[in-house]
């Protein structure tokens, strides 16, 4: 059973599960004040609900609930070899939120976590503390919006703003906030900083329409990026994942043309390119959850427990994208995942 009549469902965040230990945390109080109609359920530990057995990810995705919890150590993780480090040695990521409001069919979160409910860790100060410790020895490159879309949640969470405030005091810290959002209101509240990069994932029209459910259109994202550039934010464009679809060359060709027609290339910090890749275990669960999705049922090649397109196709896609983007951006600003 994978689909339900919409009118049978509770609205999103109808239920908010709160760990007993963080009921009075200021961030908890702030979040709860935004959802006065939600039913609050007190829990001991977020994993009691998030890690239950036999949960149905696609069904939960249709009526996501919120879990408010305390992050326990480790607060900061080493960056995955499947992610790009953009030339940074000390590559880490931090999770202040798990799961996303968007529903992209190819997203690894569906295979990584047993639940589609969104977990918010309210003790940001503990995470900041760990980052401070790391910064004592080396510069740090930290991605803060991998397992979620922080900017899309900014309206009720305000965590992007807190990261901006934190990063202001640490010039050796570089923060990347990845997003698909077009949340202009949230951008208004943020002050651009040299060491905080807003990284937008951009997909061609076909991929957006067919597979990125609930996300802003490519044009809406471009409008938002344009405003962000005008405000002086550091902007990264991520053509990642590039998805193999029918007529992919035409689709991505049109996308690149549109992007650099709308945006001043000289103001963009850098660009990333990367074909779809995913740990084999994750894809197995995703296929089980969504057997009718064409995009995840591509017969990928498995190498070292990672699925990706066959090498010749991967190379063709990367070269093609690189060739297009090189027309607008210097090569040293283009990072390709291989």
């Amino acid at each position: 059973m994978n689909s339900l009549c919409v009118n049978l469902l509770n609205p999103p965040f109808s239920h908010i599960y709160i760990e007993k230990g963080v009921v009075d945390h200021p961030n908890t109080v702030k979040i709860l004040s935004r959802f006065p109609k939600s039913t609050q359920v007190i829990i001991k530990h977020y994993k009691d609900i998030f890690n239950r057995s036999r949960q149905n990810y696609p069904v939960q995705k249709q009526s996501q609930n919120l879990i408010i919890a305390e992050k326990r150590p480790p607060f900061v993780y080493r960056g995955s070899p499947l992610c790009q480090n953009f030339g940074n040695d000390n590559f880490y990521y931090a999770n202040t939120v798990i799961n996303c409001v968007y529903n992209c069919e190819y997203c690894y979160l569906q295979g990584m976590y047993p639940s589609a409910n969104i977990v918010v860790f309210v003790n940001l100060d503990d995470i900041f503390g760990d980052v401070r410790k790391l910064l004592k020895s080396d510069p740090v490159y930290l991605c803060i919006s991998y397992d979620t879309d922080l900017l899309a949640l900014e309206g009720f969470l305000g965590f992007s703003e807190k990261w901006f405030e934190f990063a202001r005091f640490y010039p050796h810290l570089t923060v990347e906030l990845r997003t698909k959002s077009a949340n202009l209101n949230s951008l208004e509240k943020l002050t651009p900083q040299e060491n905080v990069i807003l990284a937008w994932t951009l997909s061609c029209e076909y991929v957006w329409e067919k597979y990125e459910h609930g996300t802003p259109s490519p044009m809406q994202r471009l409008n938002c990026i344009e405003k962000a550039l005008a405000k002086g934010f550091q902007i990264r464009l991520c053509f990642d994942p590039v998805i193999y679809i029918k007529d992919w060359e035409d689709e991505y060709g049109r996308l690149i043309e549109k992007v650099f027609r709308e945006l001043p290339a000289g103001k963009i910090k850098d660009v990333s390119i990367g074909g779809f890749r995913i740990p084999c275990d994750y894809l197995k669960d995703m296929r089980k959850n969504n057997p009718n999705s064409a995009i995840i049922n591509y017969p990928f090649n498995a190498v070292n427990d990672v699925y990706s397109y066959p090498p010749d196709l991967s190379d063709r896609m990367n070269s093609y994208m690189l060739g297009l983007i090189r027309k607008y951006m210097p090569e040293e600003k283009i990072f390709t995942w291989k």
Partner: peptide, 27 residues
């Protein structure tokens, strides 16, 4: 019921609360 507490073991169980309903809710 949105939460079930088993007194004998101290374990909690949580049915999903995905569907709208006309009843009161409690643990």
């Amino acid at each position: 019921c949105n939460k079930i507490y088993e007194m004998d073991t101290g374990i909690y169980f949580y049915p999903d609360m995905i569907f709208a309903h006309p009843f009161e809710e409690s643990g």
